[in-house]
Design a protein around this nucleic acid. Structure first.
Length: 431
RNA sequence: GGAUGGGUGGCCGAGUGGUCUAAGGCGGCAGUCUUGAAAACUGCUGUGGGCGUUCGCUCACCGGGGGUUCGAAUCCCUCCCCAUCCGCCA
């Protein structure tokens, strides 16, 4: 019961007002510096002023309506004057409200989603909690394993120099069997999800900034990860999550239609501002890659089960590939703005000798739905409610390539193709 | 890129300055009838907010923003989107 109420008003102004302490604690856990008290004070002031505006509006409406009926010209003039006075007053009060709303929104934008009670509390990724390991054991090599950059260059699978020449550092050309591998990984992911009832979709690679903001990105912020297109309100998408969520913006669905599950294929563009140096070698942190993304719209009471399902699918995909990985429950400080709970899959990367993130799945509850105005209607019930959105990586090509190549490398420098990919690659081995 | 026509409630669609309520239809819900269902008939039926002890009252919303006016779906400006045709093009 309590939880249901929680979802219903999550992070709208009323909820924040009525649960200021809870919101404050959550901001602290997430490392979000937000002045919740100021929000409450401003919002209370706004509510009072808003009521005054509405009362003035009501009076002005009454006056206006009476003019059409007044016969006497002098009487009409007098009422017009009264109307003018009222409208002027309204405008003044409204301007005050607008100014308040702007200040309130500025604070509100900084407030992250609530957090799942079981999500590990902590400031950053060092507080993340390992939940499980994949079916495949971390490989023991009887030789010194190469990292994917060395492997790919030896096998003529990539051209980083040409990428840098054409588009700058962080861009690359895939070549030869790497291209077949990319296509195979796409097929493998899409075919798997098709069997699970997902609707395959290719999406635009650009989106309006409004949509980016609805999903929770800040396109023109100082630390943005987003490429903006000059002289437009468009940005290159950092993930198909943006376009898939935006696809249903301003939509009211019937409850029976839910859940909707999409499997989107798009390119992803990231500036990676300030991320140079650390783990930046090769394909790990690049400005462009292809990604197969899962996205689900669900009823509020079904989103937690859906998150487990998306995580299960990610495990299934990487178990199927034969790539060793661990599942991590993301700590509150590392959740970002929209996620209520997030699991990452981290694949073993022999070249680095450590685990590296390859997928991420989040339950964003109604945080994105509220900002994008995506609701549902239940038969026989009055009104509408915000639905829940979830996203999860099926396969991010660049990082999946690292994991596959590094784990399947042989002593002679060749790479065995995972069995599930062979139908599309058309061979058993590269090199 | 050029031309033209459009954007109205869950959907379709009327509405070019003022009768309190955005016509009508479809869909949906309820009722009558029926053994049950369908059909027919009758009634109800937009979203969000505020106030009020049930009934209710009220504000905003006709693609977005701005303007004219006492009063705008309607007039003006601007932007966006959609359709059709032409041009260009993978």
């Amino acid at each position: 019961m309590l939880e249901e109420r929680l979802f219903e008003h999550m992070l709208d102004r009323k909820f924040i007002l009525e649960n200021a302490e809870l919101v404050k604690r959550n901001c602290l856990n997430r490392g979000a510096k937000v002045d919740v008290d100021r929000f409450v004070a401003l919002e209370e002031q706004r509510k009072k002023l808003q009521q005054e505006v509405e009362e003035l509006n009501r009076k002005a409406n009454v006056t206006s309506k009476s003019i059409g009926q007044a016969k006497d010209p002098a009487e009409r003039e007098a009422r017009k004057e009264e109307g003018r006075r009222l409208r002027e007053e309204t405008q003044k009060a409204q301007a005050e409200v607008d100014a308040l709303v702007e200040q309130i929104a500025a604070v509100q934008r900084l407030i992250p989603n609530l957090s799942h009670p079981e999500a590990p509390v902590g400031g950053d990724d060092t507080a993340n909690l390992e939940l499980a390991r994949g079916k495949t054991a971390v490989p023991e090599f009887d030789f010194e394993p190469l990292d994917h950059v060395e492997l790919m260059e030896k096998l003529d699978l990539v051209d980083f120099e040409a990428g840098a020449k054409v588009a700058g550092h962080g861009f690359y050309f895939l070549k030869n069997d790497a291209v077949l591998l990319e296509l195979a990984l796409q097929q493998y992911a899409v075919q798997t999800l098709l069997r699970e009832g997902f609707t395959p979709i290719t999406t635009p690679d650009l989106a309006r900034n409004e949509v980016l903001e609805g999903i929770g990105f800040i396109p023109r912020g100082p630390e943005t990860q987003i490429y903006s297109v000059e002289n437009t309100d468009l940005s290159l998408v950092a993930t198909a999550e943006i376009t898939l969520g935006g696809m249903l913006a301003d939509t009211i669905l019937d409850a029976e239609q839910l859940p909707l599950k999409f499997c989107g294929i798009s390119h992803c563009f990231r500036t990676e501002a300030g991320a140079h140096g650390r783990a930046a070698r090769g394909l790990y942190r690049v400005h462009q890659f292809t990604k197969i993304e899962m996205f689900a719209f669900t009823l509020p009471e079904e989103s937690e089960a859906m998150l487990e399902r998306l995580r299960g699918l990610e495990c299934q995909l990487f178990d199927g590939l034969g790539v060793p990985y661990r599942v991590v429950d993301t700590a509150t400080g590392d959740l970002g703005g929209p996620a209520y709970r997030k699991y990452d899959l981290e694949a073993w990367m022999p070249g680095r000798g450590e685990f590296g993130e390859v997928t991420s799945t989040s339950n964003c509850t109604d945080y994105q739905a509220r900002r994008l105005n995506i609701r549902y209607r239940t038969k026989g019930e009055k009104g509408t409610r915000f639905l829940h959105t979830l996203n999860g990586t099926a396969i991010a090509i660049s990082r999946a390539l690292i994991a596959v190549l590094e784990n399947f490398q042989q002593a002679d420098g060749s790479v065995v193709i995972p069995e599930v990919l062979r139908p599309w690659v058309g061979k058993e081995k590269i090199g």
